[in-house]
């Protein structure tokens, strides 16, 4: 049975994990010189909660039948997922240095055939939720108690297939399906509002039969609580709308108007990583102080 919320120490560990994901993501993208910084940063905290607290998996046995599945439908944010998988031991961290280089097991958009821990290939936006629905249907048919998570972008919700899948998930009451939408308000060429506004996503998913949780997508405790509540849901599929900032936590990207797919040089990377390392040091101190206080 899930405990109702994280302890302080667990929360600090998650925050450290999230910072590590950001560091590795920046280093990975800097190594190749260009990449999808913005969306990787905005989803980093949710990925930290998924792999640090919510999901059932075994890095030593990535094909374990009883594992939870993640359909990472916004496949272009692969770097954040690769960072989490490497830190958790799905593959050697050395691999991160060769992302997007010829013969790499870590392509720009996630690919199940290449990367241990990646279950579904994505990269053409809008397809992942349908696949997640299929996975959840199979679990129901077989009576498995696993959960299926689907991470989507807000811009991705402009694709019609998302709503075909949402309609089906709601009508079939796929209560073990948990969708997370990275609502960073920006897409490749600018703001969603100016390009083709998706409007009130929560209300739309609610109309399609989902339970809706709207949380600060950079507050690990909020994300964690929302997922715990979604897991207890027996009547509906759940969607967690993550209010996020594109580029969050990456010093050079966060202030940019356009940080979707950008070049990153070594100086930028070093400076951004330094800030995150300082944050990790602070978090470690905080945890130790906490231990002292508890003792």
């Amino acid at each position: 049975m899930n405990s109702p919320c994280l302890s302080n120490a667990e929360l600090i560990d998650l925050e450290i994990f999230a910072a590590q994901i950001r560091i590795k993501t920046i280093e990975m993208i800097a190594a190749v010189g260009k990449g999808h910084v913005g969306g990787s940063m905005s989803i980093a905290d949710a990925v930290a909660v998924l792999y640090g607290s919510a999901m059932r998996y075994d890095p030593a046995n990535p094909k374990w039948k009883m594992r939870d599945r993640l359909v990472y439908s916004k496949g272009h944010s692969g770097p954040a997922l690769y960072a989490a998988l490497a830190i958790k031991g799905f593959f050697p961290q050395e691999w991160l240095k060769r992302m997007n280089q010829i013969g790499s097991n870590l392509p720009s958009h996630v690919h199940a055939r290449l990367t241990p821990g990646v279950d579904v290939s994505t990269g053409s936006l809008g397809q992942g939720l349908s696949v997640a629905v299929g996975l959840a249907m199979a679990d129901r048919l077989d009576g498995r108690d696993s959960y299926v998570y689907c991470v989507m972008g807000d811009g991705e919700c402009q694709e019609g297939q998302v709503w075909e899948a949402a309609m089906f998930a709601g009508n079939h009451i796929l209560n073990r399906l948990i969708v997370l939408v990275d609502n960073n308000k920006r897409q490749c060429s600018g703001e969603l509002k100016k390009i083709n506004d998706v409007g009130d996503l929560g209300r739309k998913f609610k109309d399609f039969g989902f339970d809706v949780f709207e949380v600060n997508g950079h507050d690990l405790a909020q994300i964690d609580v929302a997922i715990r509540q979604a897991k207890q849901n027996t009547f509906k599929p759940s969607v967690i709308i993550l209010d996020t900032i594109k580029g969050k936590g990456c010093s050079f990207a966060e202030q940019m108007a356009d940080n979707h797919n950008i070049t990153v040089n070594t100086e930028q990377a070093v400076a951004a990583v330094k800030i995150l390392e300082t944050r990790i040091d602070d978090l470690n101190d905080k945890r130790e102080r906490g231990h002292v206080n508890e003792n």
Partner: peptide, 13 residues
């Protein structure tokens, strides 16, 4: 499109 996506998900299990 949704039918095919769901089918793929089913086949992965």
């Amino acid at each position: 499109a949704n039918m095919l996506g769901i089918a793929c998900g089913l086949s992965f299990k």
